[in-house]
């Protein structure tokens, strides 16, 4: 049933919110501590459990994935209701923080890529696979 998927998602989200609040109280913070993150890992765990038992039917998947597909539109709606006028007054912060974060991350990718053995490049993998498209799992 589709509703089972929606219910599964709702239960995981509610459990996450509850555990996040509980963690907040335990830590003496007046906040929901990591509730969304907890809920996401609960859902991943539930998916594994259902798959193992063969209970992950197409309608159940649809009930969850439908909401996942609405995620960007919902984020757009969220963006449209922020106090952007006030935020715009500290405009340079956005630009500087964005650029700095990206530069630091690019630099770290370069660093990590150079540490350890260099993996095969996509071109090499494809050449070895005899022109067939390299699939995830065969080459890693």
């Amino acid at each position: 049933m589709v509703i089972s998927g929606v219910a599964l998602l709702a239960i995981c989200t509610l459990m996450g919110a509850f555990l996040g609040d509980l963690l907040g109280v335990a830590l003496g913070v007046k906040a929901n501590v990591g509730g969304v993150g907890i809920a996401m890992f609960l859902l991943i765990a539930m998916r594994l459990w259902l798959t193992r038992r063969g209970l992950l039917t197409a309608p159940v998947k649809f009930g969850v994935e439908f909401w996942g597909a609405l995620y960007i539109p919902i984020v757009v709606a969220m963006a449209a209701q922020q106090n952007v006028v006030v935020a715009a007054r500290s405009g340079p912060l956005v630009l500087i923080a964005g650029i700095a974060a990206v530069l630091v991350c690019f630099g770290t990718v370069a660093l990590i890529s150079r540490i350890g053995t260099k993996g095969e490049t996509m071109d090499e993998i494809e050449a070895r696979a005899g022109g067939q498209l390299a699939r995830l799992g065969e080459t890693v």
Partner: peptide, 22 residues
Amino acid sequence: MGGAMLRDFAIVATAFEVDVSQ
């Protein structure tokens, strides 16, 4: 639509597409 409830609901749902074995 963009309030905390539906937002968290949709964000959590995206975790479903994560394939752990991959």
